[in-house]
Design a protein around this nucleic acid. Sequence first.
DNA 1: CCAAATAATGACTATTTGGTCACTTTTTTT
DNA 2: AAAAAAAGTGACCAAATAGTCATTATTTGG
Lengths: 209, 209
Amino acid sequence: MKALSEAGLRLFLERGLDGVTIDDITQAAGVAKGTFYRYFEDQTALVEALLGPVRRELLDGMEACGRALASAREVEAMFEAYRAVAAIIASALLQYPGVVRLYLQECRGPAVGARVKIVELARLVSRHAVDITEKAHTHGLLRPIRPAVSGLAVVGAVERLLLAVLSEEDIGNPLELPDALTTLVLDGLRLPPGTQPGRRKMDGRPGRP
Amino acid sequence: MKALSEAGLRLFLERGLDGVTIDDITQAAGVAKGTFYRYFEDQTALVEALLGPVRRELLDGMEACGRALASAREVEAMFEAYRAVAAIIASALLQYPGVVRLYLQECRGPAVGARVKIVELARLVSRHAVDITEKAHTHGLLRPIRPAVSGLAVVGAVERLLLAVLSEEDIGNPLELPDALTTLVLDGLRLPPGTQPGRRKMDGRPGRP
DNA sequence: CCAAATAATGACTATTTGGTCACTTTTTTT
DNA sequence: AAAAAAAGTGACCAAATAGTCATTATTTGG
C-alpha cells in the first residue's frame, strides 16, 4: 500500500494526474492490478489519501491564523500570525514535498475526476488568504488595497516560490525565503525614496527611517 | 478548422488537456474524426496553434521590456517598461482570454505530450521576468532581494490575479488591477510607518514622505 | 500443525482511443 | 459542363484501459 502510494505520487509528478493509469501504478509498485483495488476504490481515492495530511495541516494552520488575527490589534501580532502560517507551510514542505508539488501542479486545473479534491483545497486556501487579509485590513493594518487582490497576490507569489524551491530552480537558500517574502510583501520592491540609486544596502532589511 | 480550435479550447478548459480526446473535439465541433487530422497532426499541434499568437505577443513584449530596461537609469523609465508589459498582458487577455486561461491552467504541469509548449512558454516567461528584475536590480533601482526571488514572486502574483479575473472571482474592477498591483509590488502591503492605524487613506497611493 | 481469514494475483471483458484510409461530397478550374 | 482538386466522412483496426473475479499464496489464531 505504501508502495502503491509512492509509485502513484511519483508517476503523478512525472506525467500529470490524467497521464497515469492504474496499470502504470501497479507496475511501478511491483504488484498486480487487483491489489490496487483492495486499497483504493479508484485513482481519485489514492489522490485523496495522498492529499489528506497536507490538507489538514494547512487548513488547520490557516484557520488558527484567522483566529489569531481576529484578536490582533497591532502590527506585531499580525506578523506573528503570518509567521505561524509560514511555519506550517515549511513543515508540510519538509514532510510531504511530493504532495505539495502535486498540489501546486494540479491546483489550477479544472475540477474534474481525480483533481476535484486538489482544486477544492486550492479554493479553500485562497478563501482563507483573502479572509485573513480582510481581517488585517479591517483593523487598519494594511494599505487600502482590496483584500481580494492583495490576498490572492500573496497566494500566487508564495505558490510560485514554493514551486521554485521544489523544482530546484536557483533561488538561493530556501531558508532565507520567508524573510525575503516578508520584506517583499510587507515593504515592497521599490527602493525607498531617499536612498541613493546604485548604492545598495546588502543586509536585506527594510531600513526605512 | 475554426470550429475545431474553438471546440478544442472549450473542452481543454472544461476537462484539462489530458481529459479531452480527438473524438470529443470532433463531435463538439460537429465534424467527422478524419477532418481533425486534415488540419492538425495531433492534439499537440492543435495546442501549439492555439498558443502561438499569445506566445509571440508575450515574448516580444517581455523582450522589449528587457531592452527598454537595459537603458533605463531612472525609476520612471523602469515604471514605463513595466507598464508596457502590463499593456501586452491586457491586450492578450482581451484578444485570447481562453488561451490565457489554458496557459494558466496547464503551465505548471509536467512537460509531457500536448503540454510541452505551454510549459516551455512558462519557463521563458519566468526567465524573462527574472532577467528583467536582474537588470533593474543591477541599476540599483530595487531593494536588495535576490532577483530570482522577487521576479518569480511577481510572476506568481500576476498569474494568480489573471486567473481570478478569468474565473470571475470577485476582485472588483479588473481595470484597477494594474494600479493595485503596482502599489502592491512597488510599495508593499504594509501601512507606511507614521500613518495612524485605523485611519486608512482611501486614494490608494503610496503617500510616503 | 491446521483451518480460517486475509492478501495477492493476473487472465478476462467491455469500452475507449488514436490513427488510417477508401470513399463521397463539394468546390474550383478549365 | 466536365474534369480535377480539395474537403469531408465514418467504418475499421490495433492498442490501451478500468474494473472484476475465480483462483492461489500467505498470514494468523487456536
